[in-house]
Amino acid sequence: MVQPSATIDTTPPLLLEVRTAIRCYLVPRSHVDYLVKRGAEPLPERDERGRPLVAHELGALLDPSDLGLPPRHHALMVTLRRRTVVLRVARIETLTAPGPLQPLGPFITPHLARPWLLGAVVVADMPILVLDLRRIAADVALGVV
């Protein structure tokens, strides 16, 4: 069968299901450069290309009460121009077939303290927030949080 030369890709983006201490979020896979498993060992000061590493617990950035990870946890690495941001989470799972990304609407989006949310996806009749991880990492790198 001949495929049309230009098609619109309606495939939803691949999203990672991320568990923090008490919540669950979704993150576009394309926002993450590396996924790593971490133990109790201290984080090196620089990445392999010499960029300083800045680490934060992702859940606590979003909600101060969402704090406390198990000793063995995961980290989402976002490489920026001058820094690499390490966002630590309890667990990462791949979600292969998410529904469509829905906007949060005019009551929520303009009133958010920080523009860190891309929208929400309904999974098993529960909305799960989709994070703008690159924006979060940029704010962490700039030291605004």
């Binding site: 919540r23 979003l62 909600d63 009551f107 929520i108 303290a113 920080r114 949310l117 909305p127 927030l129």
Partner: peptide
């Protein structure tokens, strides 16, 4: 589902 950073009324 709580929305971090949203006003309490939401």
């Amino acid at each position: 589902t709580p929305v971090p950073g949203a006003p309490p009324v939401l």
